[in-house]
């Protein structure tokens, strides 16, 4: 666990740094391999940046709407360049929606765009796991297994390490599948649905070892139930697409 790196007088938050670095590499991957999906790198990057800008603006706007009185004394603070004044989940939803709309406006095949983004998303998943390890969040239940790690006053399942291992495996599978099938319009959607199914499966397994969770539905972890639903939907669409491809 290394939440902060001290560089002289600067205190750099490691999780944020890791997320930024992995996001940058993910975008570079998307740009570099856009041609494998018969898509223009410029158009894809335009979509990614439109989504990012919309996400940042949406996240800030939603935060202001939640706490308008906090900004009333100084309206200029609306424009402060800080991640503190930000609704992360709201920003994510706005970013995804705007990204999808801009892809549609450009007349790009939606499934093709999602496929082209998949290797980048899979790489970002590795960064996300490493950022969780550095911050100590998403920690596991107490365990006496030889590979358990000491965190928050107890020996625990290293759920962050499990998350990284799964993310590495997902990235490997997506990379292999991209090289094998990427590019043909008949296979558009397969790569993204595979990524979605594998990510949902990974979340479902790893979250089972997690000690803390934001929400419970009845007695079950919300994240696991959501992952199960996403897994079911992605498997359904994968099967249906295979069937359509076979009929054609």
């Amino acid at each position: 666990m290394l939440p902060i790196i001290q560089v002289g007088p600067l205190s750099i938050q490691t999780p944020g740094l890791i997320l930024l670095a992995s996001g940058w590499i993910a975008i570079s991957l998307v740009e570099h391999y856009a041609h494998s999906f018969n898509l223009s790198a410029d158009q894809l990057i335009k979509i990614v940046f439109t989504a990012l800008v919309a996400g940042v603006m949406g996240g800030r706007t939603l935060y202001i709407l939640q706490y308008p009185s906090a900004f009333s004394s100084n309206l200029l603070s609306i424009f402060l360049p800080t991640p503190i004044l930000f609704d992360a989940w709201g920003g994510l939803v706005v970013g995804i929606l705007v990204g999808l709309i801009s892809a549609q406006k450009m007349g790009l095949p939606l499934w093709g765009v999602l496929d082209a983004l998949s290797p980048g998303l899979a790489f970002f998943g590795i960064g996300l796991g490493v950022s969780h390890l550095s911050s100590g969040s998403f920690f596991g239940v107490p365990s006496s297994l030889p590979w358990s790690i000491f965190l928050w006053g107890d020996y625990r399942h290293p759920t962050q390490v499990y998350e990284i291992i799964f993310a590495l495996a997902i990235f490997g599978i997506i990379w292999f599948k991209k090289n094998k099938t990427g590019g043909t319009s008949q296979s558009y959607g397969d790569l993204f649905l595979t990524f979605l199914a594998l990510s949902a499966f990974s979340s479902l397994v790893v979250d089972g070892f997690r000690a803390e969770t934001a929400w419970l539905v009845g007695i079950f972890r919300m994240s696991q139930l959501m992952a199960w639903v996403i897994l079911a939907i992605s498997l359904f669409f994968l099967n249906r697409r295979k069937r359509v491809t076979e009929i054609n």
Binding site: G140, V141, H157, L204, V205, D207, G208, F209, R210, A211, E212, T213, L216, I219, F220, R221, Q224, L225, W228
Partner: peptide, 13 residues
């Protein structure tokens, strides 16, 4: 099955 099993064997703290 894993969702149910993990709930009983690895309860949320």
């Amino acid at each position: 099955g894993w969702v149910v099993y993990s709930h009983f064997h690895f309860p949320v703290v």
